[in-house]
Amino acid sequence: MNNIHPLDPRKSQSGEIDAILRNLMGIQGVSAAAIVDSDGFVTHIQRDSEINTDAIGASVQVVFGAAARAAQHVGHHVTNMVICENAEGFILSTPVEAGFMLALVTQRDALLGRVRFELKETIPVLKKLFSNYLNH
């Protein structure tokens, strides 16, 4: 447990967001974990190789936006997660708070259920961290 009580809560919340991303990177096959803002800019990222952060940020927002519109067209209402299955892996994106998104890039050998489970369990905490972070 974290027994240190920092003077700046934003700093500790940002540190915990980084810790969550590092934890997601520990899952087999995950090669990048990023928080993307509503404009497609990457605000936090953990990655195991050089990756074009601008491209990830912009494409995640575009793909999620398109999927969310498609869901509305067929009466599915709110979109909770978008999974892109590609030849060499998956990209998973899920909304956090105030337009921020959590995006994960994986290799083909990632276990989809493991990554999705971790993402689904992580989101409620990330939402709380972000609402605290944005309100301070």
């Binding site: 974290n2 915990e16 369990e121 905490v125 709380k128 605290n132």
Partner: peptide, 18 residues
């Protein structure tokens, strides 16, 4: 409790289980 501590505890318990 502090959300940072709650988050860390949840991560640890989830990792233990998985």
């Amino acid at each position: 409790s502090n959300i940072v501590n709650v988050s860390e505890n949840m991560r640890l318990k989830r990792a233990e289980f998985i």
